[in-house]
Amino acid sequence: MDHGFDGALQLPPGFRFHPTDEELVMYYLCRKCGGLPIAAPVIAEVDLYKFEPWRLPEKAAGGGADAKEWYFFSPRDRKYPNGSRPNRAAGTGYWKATGADKPVGSPRPVAIKKALVFYAGKPPKGVKTNWIMHEYRLADVDRSAAARKKSNNALRVRCVVAMRKRRGKGAQVAAARSS
């Protein structure tokens, strides 16, 4: 793949990266967690929870700000050192889980897909924005403190995230701050 002078991935005209849930998990997430190479660097590695969502499109490997979806590998931070509860605070807001978790893969689920919505401000009085992300994490991974002590990749289990900005309903906080 061709990289521009700033290190950004330069994709050919008409290229669209739109994998299915199964492709995203089986080819990209499983390979990344297994330390295997990925043929093309189309997913950037970014700690999502250090940034507001409107700052992330510029950090994406492909598509940039004009794309409708962005994909990232991100470590999962923990709220408490010995717990498995994720820390979803991000910049000036937080990501809140919504809806039921969905299994990915059949007949046996390989991963779990979770939908999250970004709220500006502090809980519980945050203002809902029009940013949504889908977090994919491997299903059969032991996230206990004992398992983390034994593992070389002990502190963080990687996940892959598909992020997009919804049109229509939702507060316009993200749009106002990105201007």
Rank of each mutant, 00 (worst) to 15 (best):
M1T: 11
M1A: 11
H3E: 10
D6Q: 04
D6A: 08
L9K: 02
Q10I: 15
Q10N: 08
P13S: 03
G14K: 07
H18N: 07
H18T: 06
T20E: 04
T20V: 04
T20K: 04
T20Q: 04
D21I: 14
V25N: 10
Y27A: 13
Y28I: 07
C30D: 12
K32Y: 09
G34W: 05
G35W: 05
L36E: 14
I38P: 03
A40L: 14
A40Y: 11
I43D: 08
E45M: 10
D47L: 10
K50I: 07
F51W: 15
F51M: 12
E52V: 14
P53E: 10
P53D: 08
R55S: 15
L56H: 08
P57D: 14
E58G: 12
E58P: 00
E58H: 07
A60W: 03
A61F: 07
A65H: 07
A65E: 11
K68V: 04
Y71I: 01
Y71P: 00
S74W: 02
P75L: 02
R76T: 12
R76Y: 00
R76W: 00
D77N: 09
Y80G: 00
G83K: 05
G83P: 02
S84M: 13
N87R: 11
A89E: 09
A89K: 12
A90S: 15
A90P: 10
Y94M: 09
Y94A: 08
W95Q: 09
W95G: 09
W95I: 11
K96T: 12
T98E: 10
G99V: 00
D101F: 05
D101L: 05
P103R: 13
V104L: 06
G105N: 07
G105P: 06
S106Q: 09
S106K: 13
P107I: 13
I112V: 15
K113S: 04
K113I: 05
K114A: 14
A115G: 02
A115K: 08
G121L: 11
K122D: 14
K122I: 13
P124G: 14
G126H: 09
G126V: 10
G126P: 07
T129E: 06
W131D: 11
I132V: 15
M133P: 01
E135Y: 01
E135G: 02
R137Q: 09
R137I: 10
R137W: 00
A139I: 02
A145P: 03
R148C: 06
R148H: 03
R148I: 07
K149E: 01
S151P: 01
N152D: 06
A154K: 12
R158N: 04
C159V: 12
V160K: 00
V161F: 06
V161W: 04
A162H: 03
K165T: 04
K165V: 04
R166W: 00
K169D: 09
G170K: 02
A174C: 12
A175D: 11
A176Y: 08
A176G: 14
S179G: 15
